[in-house]
Amino acid sequence: MKRTLPFVVPTALLLALPLLRIDARDYVLQVLTLLFLNIVLAQSYDMVGGTMGYINLGHIAFFGLGAYALGILYNAGVPFVPAVALAVLAVMAFAALISYPFFRLRGAYFALAAFGLVKLMEYVTINLNWLTGGSNGLKIDPANRTVPMYLVSLAVVVIVLLASWVISRSRLGLAMKSIREDEEVARDFGVPTRLVKTQALVVSSIFPAVMGAFYTWYINFIDPGQVFGLKIALTPVAMAMLGGSGLVIGPVVGAIVLYMAEEVIWTQFDELHGAMLGGVIVVVGLFMPGGLMRLRPLDALLGRLGWREDDR
């Protein structure tokens, strides 16, 4: 029980935050909402990217697709909750559909094809303007949904963390790790690699899909460049690697650290934000191959907490 305390206490506090009666409450909620969005994207990316070792640079495609599916369904008159459910199901179906052809690719080919998919989705969304509104964007009835969005994002963060934890201890998780270490050997030992890869991709697609759907609801007005953008595609990957790709705790830590670093940089410096962010990313790549949580002191802390994962 004690092991979960460091999760339960902050969650309870965060849950109570909307009750706070200060002027800046909504600003704080919005800052945290964006943080939560990043955590969810990084954590769910890492299911495939870290645990299974397939660097999925196209993870954001699920987010964008979820965002557009919700917008289209909602504007077509589907009530909100069923619309979210349908949007997520559509994304899961899409993930299942692409998993077979995409997982025939390995290594860099997989990463780049997935990246190309994001660009392809952006273009197709622009071109199908009868459906998506094209470059005019897609708008749903406007409203300020700061508080509900905050609560939803918090809930999704909790769920995605639980899901990562459950997966890392499950048969599926073990199979995913075996694929990362050596796919041929795993197959020879009877791991149904194709099925495992599909399952992993479908599970990892659920979370960005949910966040995408709610993102449309929150921002009210989306366009293809926004939801299929390069920056939003690459930062979650960098976050996961910063924290420690392949560890349950890694992406969430990476997301918090990088997002906070970004916040401080934006607010404290007038110039060269991008360069500073780039500097952080270079340092991570150069000096922390395993990410922050595999650094010795933090790793030792995890060990004492009984959280260390025997992952490599």
Partner: peptide
């Protein structure tokens, strides 16, 4: 003993993080 010690330390760290976020936000 060690374990609960670092537990509370982590809890305090999390709290401090959020408090500083709040403070910074309304500074």
């Amino acid at each position: 003993l060690n374990k609960s010690c670092s537990l509370s330390r982590l809890g305090v760290a999390a709290l401090a993080l959020m408090a500083s976020l709040l403070a910074w936000a309304i500074a």
